[in-house]
Computed example of a mutant assay.
Amino acid sequence: MAASGRQETFTLEAWQQAGKWFSYEGHAIFSRMGGQGEPLVLLHGFPTASWDWSRIWPMLVREHNLLTLDMLGFGFSDKPLHYSYSIEDQADLIQGWIEGLGLERVHLFGHDYGTTVVQELLAREQEGELSFAISSVCLLNGGLFPEVHHPLFIQKILRSPLGGLIGRGLSRSLFERNFRRLFGSRNPPGRQDMDDFWHLLNYNNGRGVLHRLIQFMEERRCHRNRWVGALQKAEQPMRLISGGADPVSGAAMARRYRELIPQADVVMLRNVGHYPHFEQPWDVYSAYREFRKAQ
């Protein structure tokens, strides 16, 4: 694969066809697994899905037993309309999945929304509530510290009392205009990419639950001490890979990470936005491989 990361290995249809579903609280959850080696769990962001990892998957799968899923309310998984979505519930989903597979140790790699789930799992491990060990943690562009998180205007109004109407009425053009702002200049999404992201958002009436899912931003504020403390107390190797051009959780988040996390390990990617693993998968893979080899 070229270092630019432009080549796509999977179509969205092929990604879906290679997956499997399992049940969580009576709801169907889409998952994908592949490869050999130590288990590496990939956790996606908002409002997208496990598809975000498709460009880096062929690189990682050569060396790791990869596990990923679409969390409840996202992607190809069920999106119940009247459900109390929360980070803690998504962590229950991930924890139960890992424990159900009988895994004793896992490495975690989270992006955006997924980084907050990682923080909750770290807190649970530190409290002795997991039956498995977390061997290492890698984080990509997430709202780890709510005080330096800068949501887009569309995200703010989705959290408002009008959020349900805004989500259901979200047009393709409005979505695309806002979504493109998240990407850096090196590798912006093409037309097919936008078709795929829009399809995933709409699958199973996904726009109808956006206003419920996005309440995680308030959860981050409410649970800040717990989730920031989990990072500060972590004893396993931990690295932040940050797209510096991300307007939501980029350079400012990386600076805060260096301020608050002991022996902070940060890799900055210039001119890369909120989706480094989709924009520059080779750079992210190289940074992750270096991180793991140092352990």
Rank of each mutant, 00 (worst) to 15 (best):
F175M: 11
E127I: 01
L158I: 06
S136L: 01
I166K: 11
I134W: 00
I157P: 02
Q95N: 04
L210A: 07
L121W: 03
L201D: 03
N178W: 06
D193P: 05
V118L: 07
F153Q: 05
H199L: 15
R181V: 09
G208W: 02
R124A: 15
G208Q: 15
L144F: 09
D112V: 14
H199S: 14
L158E: 10
V209E: 11
Q126R: 05
N187D: 04
E104G: 02
S136V: 00
S173R: 07
H107T: 03
I98F: 03
D196I: 09
T115Y: 00
E104C: 00
H111P: 02
F153R: 00
S173H: 07
L201E: 06
F153I: 01
G167H: 04
S131I: 02
G102E: 07
L93Y: 13
N141F: 13
Q126M: 00
R186W: 00
I214G: 01
Q155A: 11
G163H: 07
L158Q: 08
G114W: 07
Q192W: 12
M217H: 04
Q126E: 13
F175W: 08
A133R: 11
F179Q: 05
H111D: 06
H82Y: 13
D112T: 11
R159W: 05
L139Q: 01
A133I: 02
A91P: 05
N204M: 09
S84F: 10
